[in-house]
Amino acid sequence: MIPEYFSYTDSFLHRADPRLKIVAAVSITVVIAMSRSYITGLCGLVLSFFLVGFARLDIGVVARRLLAVNIFTAFLWLTLPLTYGGETMEFLGFMTISREGVAVAALITLKANCIVLAFLALMSTSPVSSLGHALGQLGLPEKLCLLLLFSYRYIAVISQEFQRLSRAARIRGFTPKTNVHTYRTYAYLFAMTLVNSWNRSHRVQQAMMLRCFNGRFYTLHPERLTAVECVVFGVIMTGVFIMAFWEFWKLQG
């Protein structure tokens, strides 16, 4: 099962139209990811923190998610200052590191945290199902939306099926070791999971046909925008445009 920690609580952002949230999250991500200045990054971080506060997310869980991201950026901090080249500076008195390397690592860390926070506040506050429908309404091809929705629905069932098989192997004394028998057993388990999933998908398709499915999904949630949502997301998007404009202007100048 996929725990959707953040989608159960309630706030303005939770109730907001998922289409607006997707558009805002994608715009913030694009602008921040393309930016080259700290000022844009810092503005983005402020915006993201504001959104996280607005969504009233559990700070503890947010911190844990950020920790996961920063394990990746930690590797950049370990490598970039030593390998980036360019102007060097002394470090701890006995070695020299690249000044630009440090700057790039800092910028990447800033951007990564900013984007993750924005996504936590905007995307994880909607259940996957409504994101799926919203993506469809935004013009994503129907097949991709269905792939998302069905993966979400059945990934837990497939994982249960695999666990059932591996339990069956374990109770007959199977302990994984580094040998051919283990590899072969795992290959069998994966293959059987694949076969079972294939059969299940066939049965699901039959169930859909029996309920008169004709290839088109109809949604039960025709979303309607409220005036407050439009204003709030208007303000957010204006902020994003200003950041984009600033970046563009700096690039020109």
Binding site: P127, V128, S129, G132, L149, F150, Y152, R153, Y154, R200, R203, V204, Q206, A207, M208, R211, F213, L220
Partner: peptide, 14 residues
């Protein structure tokens, strides 16, 4: 095999 929609209401309405 029969319940493929995310929520109960959506599935019954399918």
């Amino acid at each position: 095999d029969q319940l493929f929609s995310p929520t109960v209401l959506e599935d019954v309405a399918f």
